[in-house]
Every structure is written in structure tokens, then in C-alpha cells.
Design a protein around this nucleic acid. Structure first.
Lengths: 342, 342
DNA sequence: ATGAAAGCGCTAACAG
DNA sequence: CTGTTAGCGCTTTCAT
């Protein structure tokens, strides 16, 4: 190692020796405890700075049985919704000098379940998560919860678990999206969605179904296309097949990665948006406004959802918050653009 | 806490008591050490599973003085290049049962520098980073490096630090982008870039300058627009002002977040791409192909860069790799689309 | 106001 | 093959 002088490691013992104090005093002085004299505190702080003392987080965690670390479990990081949510979480976590350990499930139940081993070891004090779309059995989550670690769900929540949850009004958003398409003149609206069990998909599908039914349309199963939850381009073919057979004049895409797939499918089939098919998608992509044509989106308050989730988690961690678990529903926003123009 | 039965915490002592063995034996058995009898190993494994034993990572880290954790420092997470790079890093880190602690500098030198305190505490075994654009003084990085922690830079590297580096061929990419615009008929090409010191910006600017000069053009400083490195929309105005005064017929945008700003600026000024202005941008956004018009991009191999960075880091950590530091240059790809059509 | 001592859970010499 | 022992660096009673 280039100049790794491991021996100059300075810990509390070093400081104690330097100042002729005990490590106990050092410890208290550094934590600004009330029963240390102001002058001693100053001497300790000064020495710490001078010798470049850095506390060992693991020793502290081991001793205190708490880690000042939280976990974030999300399906995917290369997704605007989730990355914006992380920025929101981080805006709360960082100032508190907490750390965030980010786990990516890649929408796989197996990966997700295996991560929970780690979490039970006291590695983290709390968890913020969005469930993998392939997760059906939630035993791993319940087990962790029983150890007393607080969990806050956001967006993709577990219906069968009692915990704090931050979601958007998925039912209404999809209902509004469908209504918006109907008003734009669509008569045959399809739902393009992904496989899996997240509650948000059920809610979005229900909103879609009810909007159609209430407007006198019959919802056929053929009108619902299920794509892969992988971020691959096989979905383009699935959507192309659907467009060819069912010939919808309107599409609601339920998750971000389906926006590009839908556009490409239409393009390859020489279908023009919005003339031949109108499209609306649940997405937070900043480029929606400059797409060809600009895309009507349902924009979720990702940053604020993350922020809220973190705030609630810290409320639980500090004991400040100990009422019943709450479910916070934050409004999404339908932003009409050219892809749904008449 | 809901059913938090803290007292059933099972550690090695519990297992030892259960099986009438010492904790040393338990420890070795669990690590599959050669000097434990197969039957004992089986008994230990079985008991561990039965009692739901989870090792305490912090105790282990404290004792071993290594944490099986690496740090990733990047400017921003809501950026396709960086999030794809993280996926690449994670593809190497996860199978090794390592953890990745992600730190976001938000392109601020102060934030970045303050993170380095944390890292010196033995919290992480190694670091993969992309430097904040506002970082000029690299003392904090050098200090950490001197403690013997291996550092691998990717994309935004530090010129004045000897370390492993993964970059793309920024000079050539910009050179090619400029040549591409010239071939498309541009006579007045501007560079839209961000403020800050990353070497990649210098390289990209140099590629731009040389391509123009070699083709008989004079590069004026007015042809280079410097935007904010914040992910805000004030940049739209900066670019609008430039378009109005300098009236370029071609634009090279050096970083992802400037693509949307450039498009919006043109749109607001009713300038048509590619008729009035041709645009090429360094970006990994998946939506580039479906923009209006589709955007000519310089696509960096983000995922592979992350993967390589992680592989080199693990090479250093394992001691397998101990030759001189290497600088790996990975090729970017210019993907011509409608925004630069003649 | 300061210090002595115990111990968080684990690992690694070393003995047997 | 198994156990004893010491200690990683820190925090926290409990004395003084």
C-alpha cells in the first residue's frame, strides 16, 4: 500500500495518553457530556483535531447496539422515480449524520429475501423499502419487523403488513388517466403493465377498469398487456404484438420503463402518436417534455415521498412517533402533453 | 416496538451453550475452517439455522479491522450515467457479499470533503469515486489515500492523484462530435458545458477546440457557454441567452442534464432542431431515441465502467493486483440520430 | 469532574 | 480437533 502507515492510528486511547486522561473522559468530552469541565472539553477537542482523530463507527455501533445507519431497498436504481426518491431520503438522512445502505432487489424475490438476513444482524436501525414486483410471500419482511426494526414502505407497499406507508393515489391517477384518454376521444384503451404483485399495479388496474366501466365500456382481459419486469427491450415486441392484434387507440403504461418500449413499438409499426394511438405513462423522467411527441405523464412526487418516508422513519427511531402506523397518500399529477392531444 | 423481543438475541455464545462447545469452535465451524470435524460443522450449521443465528457484522468488522464494505461517491444519483455505473459496480460487489455505501456529493466540494472523515474511520475497505465538479483542492482525497485505502476513480478523475482510473476517451469523443457536426454542415458550433474542474470537461473542450481549429475555424471564447452544475432549470435561460446572441448552428452539450435544457431553450426560442441548430449531447438517457427530434448522443459504457472499477478495486483489496496503478480508457460511442441530420 | 472496569460479539493466537 | 484467552475501540455504570 502506498505509504499506508497503519501504526499512527489514533483512537481514544491515543488521546487519553496524550492528555493524561482516561478514555472514559475522552468519550464523554467528545460527546459534549454535561459532567466534563469546559476546559477539558476544549483540550480534548483540540487534541482530537490536531491528531486527526476519527471515531470508529463499528466499535461504537457494537457497543451501543445501534448503528446510525438505515437501509433502503428498491427494485432498481436506474429509474427516475427511485433515484429521485433516494435524493429525498438522503436530504433527511445526511444532515442527521446517518448513513444509508442501498440494496437493489432488481425486482427479484430471491435477492430481496436474501438481503433481509443482513438486516437482522443489527446492521441497520431501520428500513425504507419499495417491494420487488415478484414478491408474493412477505414472510421475510414480517420476520424482520418482529425483531423490532421499524420499516417504512413507499410506493410499492405490502398490503398484508401493518407498517407506515407512503403511496400515491394510484387508483385515482389511473382513473384520471383513463378519463383523460376518453375525453381525448379514445374508444379502445389498453393498459400496459408489468408482471408481479405490487399493490400499486392492482390499484392502477382497478382505476383503469372502473373508469372504463363507468363510462359504458366493457373491459376485456385482452386489453391488458403484461410485460416483463426486467428492464429489457423484449417488451417492445410484446407491445407490438398487442398493438397489432388488439389495435388500441389509447394506452396507459403503468411504469416508467414502459414509456420507451411503447414509443419504440409504435414507431416500428409506423403508428403515429397521438393520431393513431394516444399514450399516457406513469413516469418521472425529466425528458418527458421533450419526447417525440411530448409525453403525457402521471408524475409522482418522488422526492417528497422519499423525504416523508425518512421523516416518519426517524420519528419511529427517536420514539417521537409512536401512534398507530400511518398510511400517507400523496397526490400524483397528470401533466397533459402532446401524446394525448386530440 | 411491536413485539420486539430483544432478549432472544442469538449470538455465538448462545450457539456455544446450546451445543456445549466454545465460541471459538462455533466461529471456525461457521467459517468452514479446516480444523473442525465435519460432524461438528454440521451440528453448528444446523443449530445456527434452527435458532436463526445472524452474525453481527460490526463485531466482526471491529475485530478483523476490515468491513467488507466499499464506498461509492458520486455527484448525483438521478443521472443515467451514474445510476447505470452503480448497477455495474453492484454486479461485482453483491456476489462477493460486500456492501456498498453510496455517498452523494451533489457536486459540492464541501459535502465531498466532509464525507472523507467518515471513510478514514475504517468504515470502508475501499472507495470508488467520481469527483464533484466543484472540487479543485484534492487534499482530502490524498489524505485518505495515505491511510492505505485503495481508491479507484471513474469518469471524473483527479489528474493530480496517482490511482486507478477508468475513463472514456473524452477528447476523441468531443473531437468526433464536432467533426460530425461539421460534416452535417455546421459553421458555428458552440460548446455547452458546466462550471467546475473535472478533467473530463477539459478533455471534451480540447477535443472540441482542436476539431474546429484543424478544420480551419477559429474558436472564440464566446462559443463556450458555462452552465450551472446544479440540476436546475436556470440553465435554460443561460442557453437561451447564448442562442440569441451567438446564434450557433450546432451545439455540443457535455453532460447529461444539459440535453433537456438545450431542447427546452430551442423550443422556447422557436428554433427548430436540426434545421436551425443541430445538437449532440454526452448522455446515457435511454429516452434519447424517442426525443423530439431523436437526439444524437455520445453514449458512455457506464455499466461496464462501473464493473471495471469494482473489479480493479477488488484486485487491490485482495492483493491480487499490485502492479502500478492503471488508467483504463473505454470507448464511447457516437450514435447519430435526427438532431444532427442535414 | 474524572477514572476504573466491564463488556458489546467476534476472531485469532496459541495450548492442549 | 477443540478450548482458553486476549482484545478490536468504544460507551456506560459506578466509584471516587
Amino acid at each position: 500500500m502506498t505509504g499506508g502507515n497503519k501504526n499512527d492510528k489514533v483512537n481514544m486511547k491515543t488521546l487519553a495518553k496524550e492528555l493524561n486522561l482516561s478514555t472514559a473522559t475522552i468519550s464523554k468530552a467528545l460527546r459534549d457530556s454535561y459532567d466534563i469541565s469546559p476546559e477539558t472539553k476544549l483540550r480534548v477537542m483540540e487534541a482530537a483535531r490536531r491528531l486527526n482523530y476519527v471515531p470508529n463507527a463499528y466499535a461504537s455501533s457494537l457497543r451501543k447496539q445501534s448503528s446510525n445507519t438505515i437501509a433502503i431497498i428498491i427494485p432498481e436504481i436506474a429509474d427516475s422515480f427511485f433515484s429521485q426518491a433516494i435524493n429525498g431520503i438522503e436530504s433527511i438522512v445526511a444532515p442527521k449524520k446517518y448513513h444509508a445502505l442501498i440494496y437493489l432487489s432488481h425486482d427479484s424475490y430471491e435477492r430481496e429475501a436474501s438481503m433481509f438476513n443482513d438486516l437482522a444482524s443489527g446492521r441497520v436501525d431501520g428500513l425504507i423499502m419499495s417491494v420487488a414486483s415478484s414478491t408474493q410471500d412477505t414472510g421475510h419482511i414480517k420476520t424482520l419487523q418482529e425483531t423490532g426494526i421499524p420499516i417504512v414502505f413507499f410506493d410499492r407497499v405490502c398490503e398484508d403488513i401493518t407498517a407506515d406507508k407512503i403511496v400515491t393515489d394510484d387508483y385515482n391517477s389511473a382513473y384520471n388517466a383513463a378519463t383523460h384518454l376518453l375525453q381525448a376521444g379514445c374508444k379502445n384503451i389498453s393498459l400496459v403493465t408489468i408482471s408481479g404483485y405490487p399493490s400499486i399495479l392492482t390499484a392502477r388496474e382497478q382505476g383503469y377498469r372502473n373508469a372504463l366501466t363507468e363510462n359504458g365500456f366493457v373491459v376485456k382481459d385482452a386489453g391488458i398487456v403484461t410485460c416483463s419486469n426486467k428492464y429489457t427491450d423484449e417488451n417492445v415486441n410484446i407491445i407490438k404484438a398487442h398493438l397489432t392484434t388488439v389495435k388500441p387507440d389509447g394506452i396507459i403504461a403503468t411504469v416508467e420503463q414502459l414509456a420507451t418500449a411503447t414509443y419504440l413499438a409504435c414507431d416500428e409499426l409506423k403508428l403515429q402518436i397521438p393520431r393513431d394511438v394516444k399514450v399516457v405513462c406513469f413516469t418521472n423522467q425529466i425528458t418527458a417534455a421533450i419526447l417525440n411527441p411530448s409525453l403525457t405523464t402521471i408524475l409522482q412526487p418522488a422526492y417528497d415521498m422519499g423525504k416523508q418516508a425518512a421523516e416518519i422513519l426517524f420519528g419511529r427511531l427517536s420514539g417521537r412517533l409512536n401512534e398507530a402506523k400511518q398510511e400517507l397518500i400523496m397526490p400524483s399529477q397528470l401533466i397533459a402533453r402532446a401524446s394525448t392531444a386530440r
